[in-house]
Amino acid sequence: MKPAPFDYAAPNSIEEAVALLARHDGAARPIAGGQSLMSVLAFRLAAPALLVDLGRIPGLDAITIGADGVTLGARVRWRDIEKDGRLSGAHPLLAAAIAHVAHYQIRNRGTVGGSLAHADPAAEMPGIAVVCGAEITIVGARGERTVAAGEFFTGALATVLDTDELIVAVRLPPWPAGRRWGFEEFARRRGDFALAGIAAFYDTDAAGRARDVRIGVIGATNRPCRLPAAEAALEGRIVDDTAIAAAAAATRASVDPPDDLHAPAAYRRALAATLLERALARARR
């Protein structure tokens, strides 16, 4: 399982990296931590002519917490999120979800940008980005653009990224204190990709009703997405057993998973609803 041959470049700036990607017109691939790409190469599922290593580009590894939310540089690693004590307050959902990502060694090299670009439908970071309404900043040969996470993922392992484009950062909107949230996922073994996962959060008004309800699902659809029907079942309501049951029913009705090797569609549909119930039970505690 040796990769097909390729050339290697380690530019010192984004501009250089983008120029290399553009010049190779789809035959070059960026690599950062390589925790997804390296196994793709080992199986020869991809055979790029050039790998553009983003490892030497300064300024991509910062975690910035400010009035506009939490901004993660593309090269921020799972380990960096785990070790950043500020995040449990600044974005507890992010911290909780990222705790499920892969294993110890992978967490030391796997990056936020790599996960977003790889776009595995069961991955946590894309799911959090979508459910939170994150903005993804992209730089390419034609300049910089910002894409809403909800529009970034176009299918399993597919995104709007052009072959000459790089993710430089993702910004999660501010997380108000007192927000109710829950994250639940179910995987066969610790660190495996989830069979399904649910992230749910809402704010409460003075009467204790749920406002701005967000429910996102991973693993049970071909890309991370929100569940508008389940959100609507809770919006403006007290989150009690009845409301949760209604949201779970809406989840069952609206999630349309594929059958695959690891689970039939019916299982994932039921699992998503179960995890939603559990996430909401946690959120309202």
Partner: peptide
């Protein structure tokens, strides 16, 4: 000092 999988890292990295 950090544990990494050496099959998932290029020597040039």
């Amino acid at each position: 000092g950090e544990a990494v999988r050496s099959c998932l890292m290029l020597a040039v990295q």
